[in-house]
Amino acid sequence: MAHSGIDVLTMGSNFWRLLGGLWITIRIALVASIIGILLGSLLGILRTLPNRPLRVVLRLYLEFFRIVPTVVLLFLFYYILPKQFNLNLPANQVATLVFALWVAAEMSDIVRGALQSVSTHQREAGQAIGLNYWQLQRYVLIPQAWPLCLPATVNLLTRVVKTTSLLMLISVMDVINIGQQIIEANNKTDPNGVFWIYGIIFLFYFLINYPLSRWAKHLTQHQLEATHL
């Protein structure tokens, strides 16, 4: 092999372009996660209220986002928003919106589960000393539910990062889309470049996700030890 195609990575500004694409990927994941976690936490608290119609609506919202694959969600919003609602958003924003709504749905279930697993004694003790609903949330339930949410939330973040790989499908200029452009531009001279470009994108994703999943694992073990003691 005269050359293996690895120079495709270093040629011109190729590597910097890939990093630029990666930044777009990370930015969408980050913004969507922040919005989604905030919205999802609120929805999770609402889902513990004794209001039945509200619970049913929020449950349906969760199930819809759970059952429809993310690829399909992206296309739904990408096609339906401009057509039905006359809302022409750039692909980046559509993606951020879809991811935020998806994270919010998953987060609402994490928060609901954690709030409900705080023991009833705690809740009743709070009521006994005369805390109102929001005081009960603020001083009793949220402080105890928060550590229970954390491992699942970090796990959700790794899923968000992995799912950003689908952004290229609605032509967001993410790291994979830019990788494909580089591959196509160099295919004549460097047919082996494809191996290195996809290889480096593979590595990028691993480098972002591995620390996150280690952290989630650490948090889970920590929690297991805390509950068994």
Binding site: S165, L166, V194, Y198, F202, Y205, S213
Partner: peptide, 23 residues
């Protein structure tokens, strides 16, 4: 397990479909 869990299926498929023929 760490590699498989921490990378997206889409890139795994691209690798299998486009990069493996080179090998």
């Amino acid at each position: 397990t760490e590699v498989a869990r921490n990378t997206p299926l889409l890139i795994q498929l691209f690798f299998l479909y486009y990069a493996f023929p080179i090998l």
